[in-house]
């Protein structure tokens, strides 16, 4: 897969920029964490690189998911290489450790669905913004994350701005 943040030709760049965020569909970067299939809008991805900092946060940390291992975890080892995904968000960028395989797909707007109301009403993680059915494997549902509000909703030491203290609390 081509790194999402890699320089593109001017023509390709125009094509992507016209496609991203239009009502007809959305470009997404798909990745994994254990058994979860996750995605982030391609417009929020700044780059993809090797996993050089084992102390960096994982997507599992953000989503409070069980640890995914590269040796006998939920995925076969060949699918479990960790990569560092650069993400754009308010304030400093975020380098997030995710599991391969990664790929870029364009989803039709009709394939992207809001969170079911009973889940939206009680979800503690605003990072989880939408769902989609890729159709592969049969019926697999992916979680679409939105990092635009990450600064306000998540605190990862060294990677995010600590949440503002509630002035009314003691």
């Amino acid at each position: 897969m081509k790194a999402p943040g890699a320089p593109a030709t001017p023509a390709a760049s125009r094509e992507v920029s016209a496609a991203v965020g239009t009502a007809s569909g959305l470009d997404l970067v798909l990745f994994h964490w254990g058994p979860w299939q996750l995605a982030v809008p391609a417009s929020q991805v700044t780059g993809l690189g090797p996993d050089t900092d084992p102390e960096a946060p994982t997507v599992g940390d953000l989503l409070e998911l069980p640890a995914a291992t590269s040796d006998g975890g939920p995925n076969p080892p060949s699918l479990s290489r960790i990569r560092r995904l650069g993400l754009r968000r308010p304030g400093p960028g975020l380098g997030l450790r995710v599991q391969e395989p990664l790929r870029r797909v364009r989803l039709d707007a009709m394939a992207i669905q809001p969170l079911p109301p009973l889940i939206a009403a009680r979800l503690r993680l605003p990072l989880v913004r939408a769902l989609a059915n890729l159709g592969d494997p049969a019926g697999a549902i992916i979680l679409i994350l939105d990092f635009r509000g990450c600064e306000k909703t998540s605190f990862i030491p060294g990677f995010a701005t600590p949440p503002a203290r509630d002035q009314s609390s003691p």
């Binding site: 989503l63 079911p116 503690r124 549902i141």
Partner: peptide
Amino acid sequence: PIFPVPGCPPAVEGVMDVRGNIRS
């Protein structure tokens, strides 16, 4: 197949596909 959604109360088993519609 039911797909878990992180950050939900334990009573939420997840989401499933019902003929193209995703339901809790």
